[in-house]
Design a protein around this nucleic acid. Structure first.
Lengths: 234, 234
DNA sequence: TCACGATGTGTGGTCTGACCACACTACACG
DNA sequence: CGTGTAGTGTGGTCAGACCACACATCGTGA
């Protein structure tokens, strides 16, 4: 019997986590209703709801009103969903220095492109390429461009297949977009910079396609740290 | 004016996030009381509580009952606090394959030791060294040893000073401990393996002290992937 | 005068019961 | 046989009521 001295909502969370680990709950399953869970665990419905809320924000479940198979709280376990909220709030609370975010991004992305370039079977780069097509198709506002830019890097991570790295990149995405946009005013020429960024994106994909891991790593590192340096000269 | 069609607790969360970004709330500050916040935002106290709960799990605030300066909900923004819960639950829900966790760990830790070894001023390794001393002091159970092991790696990340990486490592810690413990039965000899791991730990610190980044990276990579391979031979 | 204990006050933590909007189900009616 | 309407169960929300706790205050006793 686990200690009962923890807060009620924590015991609910622990119970659900145990069910998850024990295989009694799997992705796609529906949680019991809030009222039923409350009775079963001997706590109030509000406590159940606080636990449910946590699981939802963490991206583990999806809730929907109404009835039927799609209603209720359903286990989804979509990676990154919660990480994004976490990183966003953490950065908002000044928990993470931008320099650390950039550095971490550098490390993760270097690993991503290395893995892509070294993959034995040619990785599927359709996703990233489509994004580049969109970015090059027409003139975009700075915000639009940078949003697609961050999305491109996220797509690379997805293509690498590493779900943990993808989740982390998804979490960093908001923070990345934030500092990227904040740096725009410091640029000498936005059109010149965006043009360069687009070229570099194509270059990164080219090195991956060429299976040149070393070049890919260099390309992505200069791409990221180049922009960072350019926006922090002032 | 933001849309009011979102769920009540989301609007509370958004309001607090906005205060964070706007500098109206900073680490160390106390949130208004739940009742006051409910009145101020025009929602019920339970909705406020759900938002508070999310912030607490994400590691952004700490709540305490009673009165006085240490009571109430206080912004703490301690990195890793929430990431840990997130990763733990995500792994529990089979959201992340172990192989991806190991791979990510490899990338992050390689970066950590590289940075430590290349630091211009000798980094402070007192924390990691103390942990090694404890591990070597006496015979430990497997669980104790592996817990300290994970803590050692986390201490290295902390020493590197990169808060984002530290947070991510903290998040991975539970998952790491989990697969490490799960692999013990597959080992030929636990005493032999633990002895080797301890030697490798000392070796990693030595390469850092020697400022040999390349050796440090190799050491940490063989340390991690070695154990992983050893426990996945069967 | 000073130490100490009872009391007051405000905090988060929890439970209960009551609505609401919604979406699907089932049944009755044309 | 189709169709629409009432029913049922879901999450979402609110209001109010306690509780335990920790600090602040003030009185009382030494």
């Amino acid at each position: 019997m686990p200690a009962e001295d923890r807060r009620a909502w924590e015991s609910v969370l622990a119970h659900i986590e145990a069910d998850l680990l024990g295989g009694r709950l799997r992705p796609g399953d529906r949680l019991p209703g809030e009222r039923a869970l409350a009775v079963e665990l001997g706590v109030g419905r509000s406590s159940v709801r606080e636990a449910i809320r946590v699981l939802e924000v963490l991206g583990l479940i999806r809730t929907a009103t109404g009835s039927g198979p799609s209603a209720g709280a359903i286990i989804v376990a979509l990676p990154g969903g919660g990480m994004s909220a976490l990183m966003r709030l953490q950065v908002a609370a000044q928990g993470f220095p931008v320099a650390d975010v950039v550095k971490t991004r550098l490390v993760l992305e270097a690993s991503v492109v290395t893995e892509l370039a070294e993959a034995t079977d040619r990785p599927d780069l359709a996703g990233p390429e489509e994004l580049l097509d969109v970015m090059e198709a027409r003139e975009l506002t700075e915000a639009e461009f940078l949003a697609l830019d961050a999305q491109f890097h996220l797509a690379l991570a997805e293509a690498s297949g590493n779900q943990v790295v993808t989740a982390m990149m998804a979490g960093l995405r908001t923070a990345i977009e934030g500092y990227a946009r904040a740096g725009v005013p410091a640029l000498v020429s936005w059109p010149a910079t965006s043009a360069r960024l687009m070229l570099e994106h194509r270059g990164i994909l080219a090195t991956i396609t060429a299976a040149d891991a070393e070049a890919a790593r260099r390309a992505v590192q200069s791409h990221i740290s180049g922009y960072y340096a350019e926006t922090h000269l002032a």
